[in-house]
Amino acid sequence: MRLTIKDIILDSDPRIREVSEEVSFPLSKEDEALIQALYQYVCESTDEEKIENEGFKPAVGLAAIQVAQKKRMLAVVLRGEEDEIVEQYALINPKLISHSEQDSYLANGEGCLSVEEVHQGIVPRHARITIEAYDYLQKKDVRIRARGYTAIVLQHEMDHLDGTLFYDHIKENQGPETLHDPIVIE
């Protein structure tokens, strides 16, 4: 299975709002192909040649529901300044098990492959989170403690699994003063 930008559904498609279902183990061949394809898309999405020739849009994460698959799966690939991968996950059945009271948000707001329209405003997130999941890349159950940008990306992708989009968190006239000791991530 190979995903392209044509496989990604938009927020105008009601399926993006569906709640994804737990994935059973052992993984079926179809589920293995899907998690591999999600990871591959995110890895390749920043390749200039693929952007130009295949219309890829750069991404740091992708959830299965974004390709119309109602499964609790997501892939995240974060790159450093030299474009090297600094963190990567291919998570199945991720669960948020704890979070900080402190908030954080991206100074320039969030975006999404499934959302073409720009939505201005603060998207409040937990500054620190702990997730438990099965990581397909490591082939084992993992506990991930994340903060900063990584925590925001993971929360964004996990929201997709529950049918929530980033702009659902934006409230009119919500400024930093309405958040709990927020960390602003540039």
Score class of each variant (00 low, 15 high):
residue 1 M to D: 10
residue 2 R to P: 01
residue 8 I to R: 12
residue 9 I to M: 09
residue 9 I to L: 10
residue 14 P to Q: 06
residue 14 P to S: 14
residue 15 R to I: 14
residue 16 I to Y: 12
residue 16 I to E: 00
residue 16 I to R: 04
residue 18 E to L: 13
residue 25 F to Q: 11
residue 27 L to S: 05
residue 30 E to F: 07
residue 30 E to W: 10
residue 31 D to L: 06
residue 37 A to P: 09
residue 38 L to T: 02
residue 39 Y to S: 09
residue 40 Q to K: 15
residue 41 Y to S: 04
residue 41 Y to F: 15
residue 42 V to R: 00
residue 42 V to P: 00
residue 42 V to H: 00
residue 45 S to G: 14
residue 45 S to N: 12
residue 46 T to E: 09
residue 56 F to A: 04
residue 56 F to N: 03
residue 57 K to Y: 06
residue 60 V to G: 05
residue 60 V to W: 02
residue 60 V to Y: 03
residue 62 L to K: 01
residue 65 I to F: 07
residue 66 Q to W: 03
residue 67 V to F: 02
residue 69 Q to V: 11
residue 71 K to G: 09
residue 75 A to N: 00
residue 76 V to G: 00
residue 78 L to I: 15
residue 80 G to L: 07
residue 82 E to Y: 11
residue 83 D to V: 08
residue 84 E to K: 15
residue 85 I to M: 08
residue 85 I to N: 10
residue 86 V to D: 03
residue 88 Q to I: 02
residue 88 Q to E: 15
residue 91 L to R: 00
residue 96 L to C: 02
residue 104 S to R: 01
residue 105 Y to W: 04
residue 105 Y to T: 02
residue 109 G to H: 09
residue 109 G to V: 09
residue 112 C to L: 06
residue 113 L to D: 07
residue 114 S to F: 09
residue 114 S to N: 07
residue 118 V to F: 15
residue 121 G to C: 05
residue 122 I to M: 08
residue 122 I to A: 04
residue 125 R to D: 10
residue 134 Y to Q: 06
residue 135 D to C: 14
residue 140 K to C: 09
residue 142 V to K: 01
residue 143 R to L: 12
residue 144 I to C: 12
residue 145 R to G: 07
residue 145 R to C: 06
residue 148 G to T: 08
residue 154 L to A: 01
residue 155 Q to S: 14
residue 155 Q to C: 08
residue 156 H to W: 12
residue 158 M to E: 06
residue 158 M to D: 01
residue 159 D to K: 04
residue 160 H to V: 05
residue 161 L to K: 01
residue 166 F to S: 02
residue 167 Y to R: 10
residue 167 Y to N: 03
residue 168 D to M: 14
residue 171 K to L: 11
residue 171 K to P: 03
residue 173 N to V: 07
residue 174 Q to L: 14
residue 177 E to R: 13
residue 178 T to W: 09
residue 181 D to A: 14
residue 181 D to C: 06
residue 182 P to I: 07
residue 182 P to V: 10
residue 186 E to I: 05
residue 186 E to H: 13
